[in-house]
């Protein structure tokens, strides 16, 4: 008898179900905002960085060993550290850029650094998959390097880039949860702070359910986009 009461008590502890959406939905919004901003930065910086890495490599359009080595080194730098450590490492830089070391804005800096390095490699790999003979087609028809990059490399690498982008978005959702440690907000933060730390089973379940759902939706959408791009 007593046991069941205790059990019931523990389960009942936490936010009532009808109060859950009021907590989860704003958190979802924060996650979306963080990942959205980060991904825009990641694509704008990581894409060109990846193209630079590939095209300065021996197989690229403008081989340049020294540039290649240094850019590649920079990209590796962003991926060398576990995200939590990276976040701590770049605190001075974050302070300098956004003027604060906590909250959504502060989280965007380390996330963008890690994400850019990630996307640079994804872009490099996707472009590397384009058969070298296709670059010859561009060169032989008198295209400029920029025209070859745009019309041949990016066009042909698009399915690979879309698949990589899907991967990247999901990784950024994961990072946004880790960024909860510096009060970044979002679903991950809610799960850790309210669900785990305060034993709020309802919040925990809702967060887990939401995360699983959004990752599934993103992966599903990503796969569909890739298939569409492959014709």
């Amino acid at each position: 008898m007593t046991g069941s009461v205790v059990t019931g008590h523990v389960l009942a502890l936490g936010t009532p179900w009808d109060g859950v959406p009021a907590l989860v939905l704003p958190a979802l919004g924060q996650t979306a905002e963080m990942v959205g901003i980060v991904m825009s930065i990641v694509v704008c910086l990581g894409g060109p960085l990846g193209l630079l890495i590939f095209n300065t490599s021996p197989r690229g359009l403008a081989p340049h060993p020294r540039v290649n080595a240094s850019v590649s080194w920079v990209a590796n730098l962003g991926r060398s550290l576990p995200f939590l450590v990276l976040m701590a490492t770049v605190i001075p830089f974050t302070q300098l850029v956004v003027g604060t070391t906590i909250g959504v804005q502060a989280a965007i800096i380390p996330m963008s650094i890690a994400g850019t390095a990630f996307f640079a490699r994804i872009t490099e790999n996707a472009v590397r998959e384009v058969p070298p003979e296709l670059l010859d087609v561009g060169v032989a028809s008198g295209a400029s390097r920029w025209q070859i990059i745009r019309s041949i490399q990016l066009t042909e690498a698009l399915p690979g880039l879309a698949a990589g982008l899907t991967l990247n978005i999901i990784a950024m959702i994961e990072y946004s949860a880790i960024a909860g440690a510096i009060g970044a907000g979002g679903i991950g933060y809610l799960a850790v702070n309210d669900g785990y730390e305060q034993f709020d089973a309802h919040i925990m379940l809702a967060c887990i359910g939401t995360l699983i759902l959004i990752v599934q939706v993103i992966q599903f959408t990503g796969d569909r986009v890739v298939r569409y791009l492959l014709h």
């Binding site: 028809s141 295209a143 399915p159």
Partner: peptide, 23 residues
Amino acid sequence: FQSANLLRRLTAAQNVALPLRFL
């Protein structure tokens, strides 16, 4: 080229158009 080297993501017409677009 040997094996034509067409861009697989472009239609026949778009492949033929490529050098003209470069121009």
